[in-house]
Amino acid sequence: MRTIMAIVEVVDETALELAHAARSLGEVHLTAAVFGAEDAGCAELARYFDRVVNFPLSPGAVFDAEHAAAALTPWLAAEQPFLILLSHTNNGLDLAPLLAARLDLPMLADCLELGLRDEQLTAVRTLYAGKVHARVVADAKGGALATLRPGAFDGDEAIDRGGRIETAAVPPGPPARRRLLETVAAEAGSVDITQAEILVAVGRGIEEQENLEIVQSLAAALDAEVACTRPIVDKNWLPKSRQVGTSGQSVSPKVYLAIGVSGSFQHLGGVKGKPFLVAINQDAAAPIFAVADVGVVGDLFDLVPLLEEKIRARKG
């Protein structure tokens, strides 16, 4: 039976997605490698994985890609799994390619689908921020590594697999070349968009900082908070605390109104809980329309003020 190793940063939905993707490849023996998990976490993983290997962390330490790469490289080299799976998260970006290079394995990054054809691993991944999809293939005879886009795969069903839990012995290596100094939250804003029921999210399509006004005004009419995509924060037009996405906040509103938002997976990765998603965008090919419930292709500079007017009229 083929062995697959899933590298688990934290025990959450992404771990179940890794498990599900692995199981979809046929009969496999599935191991989760996890860092500094508590007993409960290991037990939870054992319901989905055939084996759970816990890499202990020194007290107070957190998952760190440099440390993980150092610990995993000799272990994986010895175990020789058929496939290594990671989530394509920020930590995944920090760890996976490093691991692939050290283990000299082919790597498929940011996969939306994963398949097996003889000794070849196939995947679907995106190009040009989702405008194009590509079916790619890698020869996996000598093993392979793949990172999976969070949310692209279903989570595995809870069948209690009764996985064996063990603790890995990490031999002391050379002193770490990278040392954690501190963890910092995005600078605190006056608002907490994670608690908002209605979010009006604004993206690059707004073009100019001055134009944010129409969005803020619409949000006021809706009693909503304004959220935004990364480029808006990069330009310092809105504070980081309003950024939704894999590098920003995770939100779960009831209504998500995306204005001039193209819909990159990094942004959508922060939109949880399946809100009623409305997209207004000039570009009919924007990936946001593939996931929105309702789409309007048109000029937001006309539509947004009009929408505000109608909403205010309705409220009386």
Partner: peptide
Amino acid sequence: HEVESGLERVVEVD
């Protein structure tokens, strides 16, 4: 650098 959940970490690297 960016890690998960909107957090960032400051590291010192050789």
